[in-house]
Nucleic acid binder design. Structure first.
Lengths: 217, 217
DNA sequence: ACCTGAACACCGTTCAAGT
DNA sequence: ACCTGAACACCGTTCAAGT
């Protein structure tokens, strides 16, 4: 039915994967599909709508992996790993999430899955939306940082070469650690561990002082 | 001396503040300065160099506020608040940090200040760079999420209107919380509290099991 | 040394026209 | 119903030319 639209999205995503988001233009996508740029408009509406649809497609990939019958720890870890996997396969994805709100219905379904896990963990209802935003901000931000080079040293010889060492005492003290190359998978894992403890703490505090019904009810 | 360059940066930043980053073009900046687009090139090199310089200017604003003679808690809180204040005054700033690595020397000075605070808190040297990345990813991500609308409801009537409620059980359960409008300053504060506890936990673990010298020394 | 004007190879999008 | 070609108002950047 909307076979043509799918072909356009496929071409746009493949183009972004191979040459970066800035290589995605109506003209380049059209050429890939084998059609005139203007022929895209009836199918995708506009360039921003095309970018929205690209995000929706990837968020849709995230959904089938959801499994409600596992522990909240496993559910959150699975979602975090799927999100990071998406960011690694499609380096433009995280940046796009910081460019515009995700308007596709897939986005809200993923948020609901995180809500479910946090509720199962015993987080008080009042804190669930905030902690979901904290977690998603970190996971999307981690992907965007990796993709943009924000994490890596600017200079191949290491950042410390840029300035006289006297100006950067902590860099100097940490020199032996900063010279190591980082295992980004292991770092992501360690971060998730720390954030999971943060969730446990939020749940324990709630158990200590119950009675957290919404003031409006 | 380079008075002209500063005038160009001023114009570009003001333009981005007023009309968004996508309104910043060599042509629009030149018009604001009262000069031909081509006259910018000797002063800023290229458009990407102009964007780098805009980031450098804002990161430079962050530095004078640094004060080494306060507790690590206050130092981290001050830096976090200054960073968020920057994101509020210049909504394009966070997004730009996820677009490209910060190449200006100001960036590494801010990182060093965070390193100093984490070391003072008792975080083991091996964990300091990771926790700096965790904190900066959150703070920049929070600014980018606010600016992009990623946090806010897509539909003014709330997100839940988009899908049948049966598909979103946790949204349904949390309905009374999700209908409230959020105080983003308070949320940022609560997040910082949680993250500060994470730092304390990392420091306590280190005190329990000492001997964390780099393997290479 | 600093700026200008014309030009080149790109953009997203509109609109009338074709089949 | 779907696609095309020409056109419009933009981009960043190069280059020869002006003062």
């Amino acid at each position: 039915m909307t076979e043509r639209r799918d072909a356009i999205l496929d071409a746009a995503i493949k183009l972004a994967d191979e040459q970066g988001l800035e290589a995605v233009s109506m003209r380049s996508v059209a050429e890939r599909v084998g059609v005139t740029p203007m022929a895209l408009y009836p199918h995708v509406g506009s360039k921003t709508a095309l970018l929205d649809a690209m995000m929706g497609r990837l968020l849709g990939e995230l959904l089938p992996t959801l499994n409600a019958h596992v522990s909240w720890q496993d559910q959150l870890r699975d979602l975090a790993h799927e999100g990071r996997s998406l960011s690694k396969r499609h380096p433009w994805f995280a940046r796009l999430q910081f460019d515009r709100p995700a308007v596709e219905p897939g986005a809200v379904r993923v948020v609901d899955a995180v809500y479910q896990a946090l509720l199962k963990a015993g987080v008080p209802e009042a804190d669930v939306p905030r902690l979901e935003r904290l977690l998603s901000t970190f996971i999307v931000g981690y992907g965007a940082s990796e993709a943009s080079g924000r994490f890596g040293p600017v200079d191949p010889r290491g950042r410390r070469g840029q300035l006289p060492e006297g100006d950067l005492p902590a860099h100097h003290q940490l020199a032996s650690w900063l010279d190591r190359e980082v295992d980004w998978d292991a770092e992501f894992e360690a971060d998730l561990q720390d954030l999971q403890r943060l969730i446990v703490a939020a749940a324990h505090e709630a158990a200590g002082q119950p009675g957290s019904a919404p003031a409006g009810s």
